[in-house]
Nucleic acid binder design. Sequence first.
DNA 1: ATCAATTGGTACTGGATTGGTACTATTTGG
DNA 2: CCAAATAGTACCAATCCAGTACCAATTGAT
Lengths: 157, 157
Amino acid sequence: MIRITRETDYGIVLMTTMARDANPPYSAAALAKQRGLPLPMVSKILKALARAGLLLSQRGALGGYSLARRPEAISAADIIDALEGPIAITECSVADLHACLHEENCAVSGHWHQINSVIRAALKGVNLLDLSRPPAAPVAFWRQRAAAEPVHLVNNS
Amino acid sequence: MIRITRETDYGIVLMTTMARDANPPYSAAALAKQRGLPLPMVSKILKALARAGLLLSQRGALGGYSLARRPEAISAADIIDALEGPIAITECSVADLHACLHEENCAVSGHWHQINSVIRAALKGVNLLDLSRPPAAPVAFWRQRAAAEPVHLVNNS
DNA sequence: ATCAATTGGTACTGGATTGGTACTATTTGG
DNA sequence: CCAAATAGTACCAATCCAGTACCAATTGAT
């Protein structure tokens, strides 16, 4: 299954939360409580988002985080990049091409780059404003890993 | 980083290998040797692909695997589905929506489905024939996890 | 000035996932 | 009837990830 980490998942939830009601700054504690997420995680994620320039941070009492740009100017790709590094579907989509150990055997070559580009385009096409406004048919979002038996995934092909 | 497992990566290499020179059937051992991959892994992957209907298996002496359909009729999405279950970028893209533990907190909702669809479309648009024919500028493919220091990924945005 | 709230940074840990192996059963051509 | 090959299952070790803990730095309020 192609997937992003839960950290990124949380990150998007936090960003959308901040985008929805504009009343900055938001402390990590407030956001954690509002969304029911573990505070240390939230803190860690916000820090990363601030370092990436997506959030502005204000230290000290009454401090907190606020969006660095308008929601329309922040894409899903931005958030994912900030939290897990640039998007790449396989490890071979790297700059350092000659480090590949299977180089002489590998003939699949550059097509993954093409796929990566399309995926990136898709993610860049979705911005925070879109994400913070519920679509026509709102649905549940995550499911905890706790799910004991194999989750039956939907094949929306 | 959005990613697929190495198993899937191997699977695509194996499929492209079989698509390139049509001389079936291929034994797991022959494919493993040709690509320099560990035989047990190759065997496991081929089994999964056969179970998914992408390969035909022939038991016994002189047996092996062969493509079940023409290369043009097998997409990257097919292979990924076969090896890691249906594609979903987050765990919430599941059918069983009401199982979501954060239901009342989650407002990001259905947009990921949209993104998933686009990604699926991208992967369905690439077939085995494409993948088995090197593109204009062939490049190396994987890099072993061994890479000690943080890989500097290319941000092809 | 001092305190308390808040971000910043780093290091650690338990558990899940993944990559890979081993062993045995089954099928089938020679 | 043997050897080659797939089929199935169980297992192990290394890695990665989610989450925690701790302390330093900053800053508004009193």
